[in-house]
């Protein structure tokens, strides 16, 4: 079985600090990491490799530094990595990003399964996974929380949806996006790290891919960002103390009044 895992490089978020003066995120000095939600996709792929046998290729579109996240994927247990990188790809929206990724996938040849993250923590659209499926004309299941079985070239799944878990099956080749519930990601191993250090990762560019030049980067993107604002994050809220009995009762009363004033009660 051949599995492809598209992963995105994003700014590290767990050490993000807020600027108390302006209420904005301090972004300088942030490290780039594998999109945290893509770790679940990588783990799912590695488990399928362990249970059914599979060849795993992580692919990432981004600047040359994105090589680092591919090495990390290999250190976790992927067999190969492919970097898709070219200045012409810069500024792509999800339509153009998914086009370029799908052309890279075509270049790689036949595959059985693509496993993407639910969404990336920066752009945060959750659109790239289903969009790749549309370009490749393969069926898609999003929000997959469990793989129940792989049998006779079909995959049996559960999706976490508003009504509970939807159970479905679909044939290979297909694409799934996974949620955190599916598995706990493993850490890279020492052996994996050594292997990834010496590994040659091929780079796909506009030169060696079959691409429609009108579909690339900022120019090929139907959506345009016109402005970016920083919303005020602190709400000049009211803070009350509930220490002793008296202040506790007063706080509970005030809370009820608050709910009444706001039309909740």
């Amino acid at each position: 079985m051949k599995i492809l895992i598209p992963i995105k490089q994003v700014p590290e978020s767990s050490n993000v600090k807020m600027d108390p003066e302006t209420g904005t995120v301090i972004r300088s000095g942030l490290e780039s990491v594998v999109n945290p939600l893509d770790l679940y996709a990588l783990e799912t792929a590695i488990r399928l490799k362990e249970s059914c046998g599979a060849e795993l290729t992580a692919i990432s579109m981004g600047p040359p530094q994105a090589m680092k996240v591919l090495k990390e994927a290999v250190a976790m247990g992927c067999d190969h990595g492919v970097l898709i990188s070219d200045r012409k790809f810069g500024g792509a929206d999800t339509w153009a990003t998914s086009y370029t990724l799908s052309q890279a996938i075509r270049k790689l040849g036949d595959f059985d399964l693509i496993i993407a993250g639910e969404r990336a923590t920066d752009g945060d659209t959750a659109q790239v996974g289903p969009a790749i499926a549309a370009w490749l004309d393969v069926p898609v299941a999003t929000y997959v929380s469990k793989i129940s079985e792989v049998k006779d070239s079909r995959i049996y799944l559960e999706r976490l949806v508003e009504e509970g878990y939807q159970m479905l099956s679909m044939p290979f080749p297909c694409l799934i996006t996974v949620v955190k519930e599916i598995a706990v990601p493993r850490l890279p191993t020492l052996k994996g790290k050594i292997r990834s250090r010496d590994m040659e990762i091929p780079v796909f560019t506009s030169e060696n891919m079959d691409l429609n030049p009108d579909f690339l980067g900022l120019k090929g993107s139907p959506t345009k960002v016109v402005r970016i604002n920083t919303p005020k994050v602190t709400r000049s809220g009211k803070i009350v103390q509930a220490g002793d009995d008296e202040s506790l009762n007063a706080a509970a009363d005030e809370f009820v009044v608050f709910l009444e004033e706001k039309g909740i009660l």
């Binding site: 994050v233 602190t234 709400r235 809220g237 009211k238 803070i239 009350v240 103390q241 509930a242 220490g243 202040s247 506790l248 706080a251 005030e254 809370f255 608050f258």
Partner: peptide, 8 residues
Amino acid sequence: LADFGIVG
């Protein structure tokens, strides 16, 4: 961030 906070 809260509109109403109870410290307790």
